[in-house]
């Protein structure tokens, strides 16, 4: 009962924060955890990312959507240090993060997952989990040689990993190689492993890609759960049903820029978003001659249908 009240409280708090915001790209949020300014990434002549200003609200679930090639994953890569931006700056918890290498971004509390799951195949599920823990004494070369230095910490890490595995229903698989898991289970493992880092901001790159429908619900539940535990979630997704179901706020990217923001239930009716997905003139004929062509086609089809009827 108590869990339910906090659940609704967290969700309500997140929604309240977004209540009176304008639906413009780059709209300022009351308490942003991540603030991005003028990030540009070019590949030769192609500008893959050109984001003027975006803020991500703390304690919310924000979805990043956009048509294929909109630059969502590239944008993710800039923010997490996996690729170098050509220009721009961004701050995480007020700390400047541009030019910071990927491993330091993760240590700062901003952890990502990947579109193509990166389960470490020939490590067991448990070893995958343990790897996520930070500040491990046994990860130092000299201390690694003396087990008594790190045994205690390792036991504590294992205990925490076991709790997480139970929550993600992977406890039975703890001693199996991660490579033997199904696609969906790997996604779960990757998410659980990211939580071992104890992040403040979890960035999920297409968490639902390649997951069978039976697991989708459970994955959705886990994503919502992250917010309930006080984490902020930013995720890239194509599946609009999922976006509508779990996100508190949606940021839309197209051709490298943020073109709109808004709550999930109204964002898809936004003119700019429809244009981005379907093209600005998707329902208008392209020219006069094409219009007549369309008419002729329709007539021909009708005639054919009539003919078929009479032949019967």
């Amino acid at each position: 009962m108590r869990a339910e009240t906090t659940t609704s409280e967290r969700k309500a708090a997140a929604l309240a924060a977004f209540k009176d915001l304008a639906h413009d790209p780059g709209v300022p949020k009351p308490d942003p955890i991540l603030v991005v300014d003028d990030v540009v990434r070019r590949f030769g002549g192609l500008t893959a990312v050109d984001v003027k200003h975006v803020e991500i609200q703390r304690g919310s679930i924000t979805a990043l959507i956009g048509p294929n090639g909109a630059g969502k994953t590239t944008f993710f890569n800039q923010l997490t240090g996996f690729d170098t931006a050509d220009a721009g700056s961004w701050t995480f918890n007020g700390r400047r993060m541009n030019g910071v290498p990927a491993h330091k971004v993760a240590r700062a509390g901003m952890v990502r997952t990947f579109q193509l799951t990166k389960a470490l195949s020939r490590l067991t599920v448990m070893e995958n989990m343990r790897l996520g823990a930070q500040q491990q004494k046994g990860e130092n070369f000299w201390r690694a040689l003396v087990p008594s230095f790190w045994r205690g910490q390792e036991d504590a890490i294992t205990e925490r990993a076991e709790d997480l595995l139970t929550r993600f229903k992977l406890a039975a698989k703890r001693d199996d190689f991660a490579g033997s898991l199904s696609g969906g289970q790997r996604k779960l493992l990757e998410m659980a492993r990211a939580l071992m880092v104890e992040p403040e901001l979890v960035m999920l790159d297409e968490p639902m890609a390649g997951v069978n429908p039976a697991l989708t619900q459970s994955l959705l539940g886990h994503v919502k759960d992250l917010r309930e535990q006080g984490m902020t979630v930013l995720f890239v997704e194509h599946d609009m049903d999922m976006v509508r179901d779990i996100s508190d706020w949606v940021v839309v990217m197209a051709q490298g820029s943020v073109i709109a923001e808004g709550p999930p239930d109204t964002i898809m009716s936004d003119e700019r978003v429809i244009d981005a997905y379907l093209g600005a003139h998707h329902d208008a004929p392209l020219s006069e001659s094409e219009l007549t062509e369309q008419l002729q086609e329709a007539e021909a089809a009708l005639e054919a249908e009539i003919e078929e009827e009479t032949q019967k």
Binding site: G81, S121, L131, V197
Partner: peptide
């Protein structure tokens, strides 16, 4: 040891290991 675990993880996928703060 955990040190060796990081090595084996690097063998599997460097980027995953980076994303976990190593």
């Amino acid at each position: 040891s955990p040190w060796g675990r990081v090595l084996k993880a690097i063998r599997e996928d460097e980027d995953a290991v980076r994303s976990l703060g190593k």
